Amino acid sequence: MRVAFDASSIGSGLGGDETMARALVRALVRGAGPDDEIDLLFAAGVQPDVDRASAHVRATVEPRSSGPRHFLRDLPRWVGGLMPTPEVLVSLTHAPCGGGVPVALMVPDLSFEHLGDAFPRPTRLRLRSIVRRQVRRAAGVLTISEFCRSDLISTYGLGSDVVHHVPLHVDPPEHAPQADELDELRRRLDLADPFVLYVGNLHPRKNLPAAVDAVRGARRRCPALADHRFVVAGATWWGSEAHPGGADDWVRFLGRVSDDDRHLLVHAAEALIYPSRFEGFGLPPLEAMARGTPVVASNATSIPEVCGDAALLVDPDDIDGMADALVRATTDDPVRSSLIAAGHRRARHYSVERTAHGLWEALRAIALEPAPIPAPTR
Score class of each variant (00 low, 15 high):
residue 210 A to I: 03
residue 210 A to R: 04
residue 211 A to L: 04
residue 212 V to R: 00
residue 213 D to R: 03
residue 214 A to F: 00
residue 215 V to P: 01
residue 215 V to T: 03
residue 216 R to V: 13
residue 217 G to I: 10
residue 217 G to A: 15
residue 217 G to D: 15
residue 217 G to Y: 08
residue 218 A to M: 14
residue 218 A to L: 14
residue 218 A to Y: 12
residue 218 A to E: 15
residue 221 R to G: 15
residue 221 R to Y: 09
residue 223 P to S: 00
residue 224 A to C: 10
residue 225 L to S: 06
residue 227 D to Y: 04
residue 228 H to D: 09
residue 229 R to G: 04
residue 230 F to Q: 06
residue 231 V to M: 06
residue 231 V to Q: 07
residue 233 A to D: 11
residue 234 G to D: 10
residue 235 A to Q: 13
residue 237 W to K: 12
residue 238 W to E: 14
residue 239 G to W: 06
residue 239 G to N: 14
residue 240 S to Y: 13
residue 241 E to C: 10
residue 241 E to M: 13
residue 242 A to C: 13
residue 243 H to F: 14
residue 246 G to H: 03
residue 247 A to G: 05
residue 249 D to S: 09
residue 250 W to H: 01
residue 250 W to S: 06
residue 252 R to N: 01
residue 253 F to T: 08
residue 253 F to G: 09
residue 254 L to H: 11
residue 257 V to G: 13
residue 258 S to E: 10
residue 258 S to P: 07
residue 261 D to G: 01
residue 261 D to H: 02
residue 261 D to P: 01
residue 263 H to L: 13
residue 263 H to K: 07
residue 264 L to N: 01
residue 264 L to W: 00
residue 265 L to S: 13
residue 265 L to H: 13
residue 267 H to K: 06
residue 268 A to T: 07
residue 269 A to M: 06
residue 269 A to G: 09
residue 269 A to Q: 06
residue 270 E to D: 14
residue 271 A to W: 11
residue 271 A to K: 08
residue 272 L to R: 10
residue 274 Y to M: 04
residue 274 Y to N: 03
residue 277 R to M: 11
residue 277 R to S: 12
residue 277 R to P: 01
residue 278 F to G: 00
residue 279 E to R: 01
residue 283 L to Q: 08
residue 285 P to M: 05
residue 285 P to Y: 05
residue 287 E to M: 05
residue 289 M to P: 04
residue 291 R to A: 09
residue 291 R to Q: 05
residue 291 R to L: 02
residue 292 G to R: 00
residue 292 G to N: 02
residue 292 G to S: 05
residue 293 T to P: 11
residue 294 P to L: 04
residue 294 P to W: 04
residue 294 P to R: 05
residue 295 V to T: 07
residue 295 V to L: 06
residue 295 V to H: 05
residue 296 V to N: 00
residue 297 A to F: 06
residue 299 N to C: 15
residue 300 A to T: 02
residue 300 A to N: 03
residue 301 T to D: 10
residue 302 S to Q: 01
residue 303 I to V: 13
residue 303 I to H: 07
residue 304 P to W: 10
residue 305 E to C: 12
residue 306 V to D: 07
residue 307 C to R: 08
residue 308 G to R: 09
residue 308 G to I: 12
residue 309 D to H: 12
residue 310 A to H: 14
residue 311 A to G: 14
residue 314 V to L: 08
residue 314 V to Q: 09
residue 315 D to I: 04
residue 317 D to A: 12
residue 318 D to C: 06
residue 321 G to F: 02
residue 322 M to E: 14
residue 322 M to H: 12
residue 327 V to C: 13
residue 329 A to V: 04
residue 330 T to E: 11
residue 331 T to L: 07
residue 333 D to S: 10
residue 333 D to Y: 02
residue 335 V to A: 11
residue 336 R to D: 08
residue 338 S to I: 02
residue 339 L to E: 07
residue 341 A to P: 07
residue 341 A to N: 09
residue 341 A to M: 10
residue 342 A to F: 03
residue 343 G to T: 01
residue 343 G to W: 02
residue 345 R to H: 15
residue 347 A to G: 12
residue 351 S to L: 12
residue 356 A to V: 12
